[in-house]
């Protein structure tokens, strides 16, 4: 524990407290692990909550098939290093099983299809609590999210049915078939996450740091070229010094121009930026004003 502010310690205490509540109140919890920075921080906090014991639940990765390869490599290394159990839910398998149609457009997102794989794996393993890294500062629909968010048999979230969450008491009682999404990082901001990564010297996939990458200039965003995001005629393609501020699918996450190669430079960059994390990097949130609210109602994380 190096120089860590009182504020960060309080956030860490809160998250550890939530993890222990999940372990105590649920039969079969799971930690949803995307390989992104928020879920890496979650794993780190879970290790602390149960140390020197093991984490009493598996990690679940919803693999869209459009992940950055370096994130998958990092995921597997981290799972091995922490002696965790990993379950992979495949979106491609769900597409075949349900004969799902891919989204249209230039860079079709599999976000909507992710829900099928997630709900399937919840049903298969009878998970009653799924822990995720969503934060209330990310987006307006998330600002009203509970720490324990109850979902019905269809994985649906109804803002009007959420329980009042009083003091630090978490009510995890649910009916059969229902499950709870748990958000230990609810009160963290993007800057808090980075400061915590710094103070705990947490390793991240390399694409979070500035590097050279071939990108397509698409509208006002930079999209990495890959097998699933190929350049077409008339595209402007250049090699730029970029980094990723969020890590989702290759088809829906944009890179940002950046010279920040150290964590201090990243923190400085975020501190000075005037555009939100999702606004700068997500190609899929801006389709409609209420895109996130709609997806959440359908069972999206």
């Amino acid at each position: 524990m190096s120089t860590i502010s009182k504020h960060l310690i309080a956030l860490e205490d809160e998250a550890i407290y939530i993890f222990r509540e999940v372990a105590a109140q649920f039969e079969r919890p799971a930690l949803l692990f995307s390989g992104g920075k928020d879920s890496i921080v979650l794993l780190h906090l879970a290790l602390k909550a149960f140390s020197p014991g093991k984490i009493p639940f598996p990690l679940v990765h919803v693999d869209t098939g459009h992940n950055f390869p370096e994130v998958i490599t990092f995921r597997d290394q981290l799972v091995a290093a922490t002696n965790s159990r990993l379950i992979v839910a495949s979106v491609e398998a769900a597409i075949r099983k349900y004969n799902l149609k891919e989204a249209g457009g230039r860079f079709p997102s599999r976000n909507a299809l992710q829900t099928y794989a997630l709900l399937d794996i919840i049903q298969e393993y009878e998970f009653d609590a799924c822990i995720g890294g969503a934060r209330r500062d990310e987006e307006k629909a998330r600002a009203k999210e509970r720490i324990f968010s109850v979902r019905d048999d269809f994985g649906q979230w109804d803002p009007k049915l959420q329980r009042p969450e009083l003091w630090d008491i978490l009510n995890g009682k649910i009916s059969k078939g229902h499950n709870v999404r748990v958000f230990p990082l609810s009160n963290w901001t993007e800057l808090d996450v980075w400061n915590y990564i710094k103070s705990n010297a947490i390793q991240l996939p390399p694409l979070y740091y500035a590097h050279q990458r071939e990108v397509i200039h698409f509208q006002d965003k930079l999209v990495a070229t890959s097998d699933v995001t190929r350049a077409v005629q008339d595209d402007i393609v250049t090699v730029e010094q970029v980094r990723y501020r969020t890590v989702g699918d290759m088809t829906c996450t944009a890179a940002v121009p950046s010279q920040a190669v150290t964590i201090d430079e990243i923190i400085e960059e975020i501190f000075n930026t005037r555009i939100s994390e999702r606004g700068q990097t997500r190609l899929d949130d801006q389709v409609s004003e209420t895109a996130m609210e709609d997806r959440k109602k359908q069972g999206y994380f």
Partner: peptide, 18 residues
């Protein structure tokens, strides 16, 4: 935040802001 609220012009739930 929520469309349901904007349609009714009211706030229906606690929103946390940082």
């Amino acid at each position: 935040g929520l469309r349901a609220e904007r349609e009714q012009g009211i706030t229906i739930d606690v929103a946390y802001k940082y």
